[in-house]
Design a protein around this nucleic acid. Structure first.
Lengths: 356, 356
DNA sequence: TTGAAAGCGCTAACAC
DNA sequence: GTGTTAGCGCTTTCAA
């Protein structure tokens, strides 16, 4: 029974022989409708292909059980982890999640923000672009909002990885597992990478540490950069050569492994290598890479929880304070630093078939 | 100037000292407003932090320049490619894109579909779950709709990879590059994989082909399955051993490479291996993998174009026909089948840093 | 250009 | 439980 014209609640009511209000109740307060009536209404709605006009619904005061998530792009795994975590957590609480990619354009990001605001979603999650001088948008709306994967001192809600702890973790892993000379490689242009370096510095400043050096090199922290740096270090005379490389990103680490091997040395036998990102890719390289556990998922989850907390508070008069939450990482020690589980690669729990 | 209450178009009109209608026009038909008035209105709106209520807007008859994309999940690369392609193409045409993950739950998928329908988006894109017996939803709405990454004979619009061609391509690559005995491995449970097998069959049925066999083995096409199958084949006596393995998925292929090496043989020297997915991961394994180019991006782009075509047609009385579009793949021949470009790994164009 | 007014489809509050 | 009704904020139309 294809109709040309849109089916409205009135059509359903007439067809089912009930009052308009009952149809509304059937959808919003099913308990207020007699079971048999309810069934008849739902059956009719289904038969007619009735899809409630969400716009009218919201306008009339309905609640939108939907969160909006704005990502800077879809080409960074952390964003996918965030999306996955947020999506799962939202669903768990009976919410839906709508995602948008700003495609690294701030104006686009703001447009989606305005759209979500204008559409009266229950809350907005936003992962800002990874730029040095990022500042939170002025948010004139009263919609719950949380920024993900950034730290900031401005008022607002933030959930980020504890990059200081990440650096500390890797550094400790290095010297506690017997490294005698550590090289940290990468370009700490971004705040989060600089924090990792700082965390390492603090760890190395403590007692049992070994000598270390930081090579702030490579323009883009790409695999290519890693290759160059890895080779460079491996080709040093033995007495100046590090026996442990910590790369600021996993991509860099993967490249470094190739570089070390290209120079004729072995990983981990001659030089051990570790990354910092928690990149599932790390499982499948030539040598399973030591890194931290993927952390974006948890960031997404906590972001949703913060939104829900803000909703529950509903203490709208309260001044917005700075509310930061840091997600602590934990280490995944694998073959690239000597933890030799050769079956890691085929770990059935790690299905990366999708990352094509 | 933080207000507790929502700022409406009336507030802006009053504050700017103009008529309500002019504010509306300023946003929807800027050309109908005197430039200086326009500027004053926009300035005021900005100062007040006015975000038009999208619901009221749509209700009153505005057009929604927004597409909705429903993905079965976020953990398959093809979905990300689709999202990326659709997002870029939509933006190019002045549309936004809202994405939702059904988390492999059909009911959730339908909910998002209904939401998008109810919110009056300009069109809906849907990648159905990869199940054997999938059928299109009955779509009672008149909103443009296209299904991605599936082929189907039911009325509707479909954009999918040409899996037949993929199979053909790989098979030809095998025997044209001198294979003397080919093994095809994997479990063609899914239609798309079965099509690849069929494509190979057709290619091998042609002239210059070599002998081949199909091992419909492995329960999940996982890396683990690949490992087992690769080892199994490599351990055969030499006269029965294939010198070329085509795996139905890239994950499987990556595993197979490990399996072959675990059995003491070399890739590609003793046995060559190829995959079928176009998975960027394929670049970073122990041996760069021959596979097809990533195809999801193009599927996403074409999906959006189909939506726009449907919008432009606006020939609503027309009976819906079956409209299929197949995206042809092309081959990426790399080291795993003997094309030895050792620098592939660090290809700066292939930044997979994100896939963590 | 302006001001006034008619809905868009729905929810919630009301009397029944 | 049912039927009725007043808006929600906006776009559009129309006369001024």
């Amino acid at each position: 029974m294809p109709r040309r014209t849109t089916i409205t609640i009135t059509d359903v009511a007439r067809e089912a022989g009930v009052a308009l209000g009952s149809v509304s109740n059937a959808f919003n307060h099913p308990d207020k409708v007699r079971p048999e009536t309810l069934e008849r209404i739902l059956e009719t709605a289904d038969r007619l292909g009735y899809a409630p006009n969400q716009n009218a619904r919201m306008l009339a005061g309905g609640r939108n059980r939907l969160f909006g998530l704005i990502l800077p792009g879809l080409d960074h795994g952390i964003s996918l982890q965030i999306a996955n975590g947020a999506s799962a957590e939202a669903r768990k609480h009976g919410y839906g999640l709508l995602m948008a990619s700003a495609q690294t354009d701030e104006k686009t990001a703001r447009q989606y923000r305005d759209y979500f605001t204008g559409t009266r979603v229950a809350g907005i999650l936003m992962q800002p672009p990874a730029v040095r001088d990022w500042k939170p948008l002025d948010s004139p709306s009263h919609i719950p909002l949380a920024y993900l994967d950034v730290q900031n001192d401005a008022p607002g809600h933030y959930v980020a990885a504890d990059n200081l702890a990440i650096g500390e973790l890797l550094a400790r892993h290095a010297f506690q597992s017997g490294a005698r000379r550590v090289a940290v490689i990468g370009n700490p242009t971004l705040n989060r990478l600089a924090l990792r370096v700082e965390g390492m510095r603090q760890a190395f400043a403590s007692g049992a540490a070994c000598p270390y050096e930081v090579l702030e090199a490579g323009a883009w922290n790409s695999a290519h950069d890693g290759l160059d740096l890895g080779r460079l270090l491996a080709e040093r005379p033995e007495e100046e050569r590090p026996d442990f490389i910590i790369a600021l990103t996993d991509t860099l680490a993967t490249g470094a492994i190739s570089g070390v091997r290209a120079a004729g040395l072995r990983v981990p036998n001659d030089i051990r290598v570790a990354g910092c990102d928690g990149n599932p890719l790390a499982w499948t390289g030539p040598v399973p890479l030591t890194t931290v556990a993927p952390i974006g998922y948890e960031i997404g989850r906590r972001g949703v929880r913060q939104l829900i907390a803000q909703i529950d508070e509903e203490d709208p008069g309260e001044a917005v304070e700075n509310h930061q939450e840091l997600v602590r990482p934990f280490l995944l020690a694998r073959a690239s630093t000597g933890v030799n589980r050769s079956d890691d690669f085929a770990d059935p729990d790690i299905d990366i078939s999708g990352y094509l």
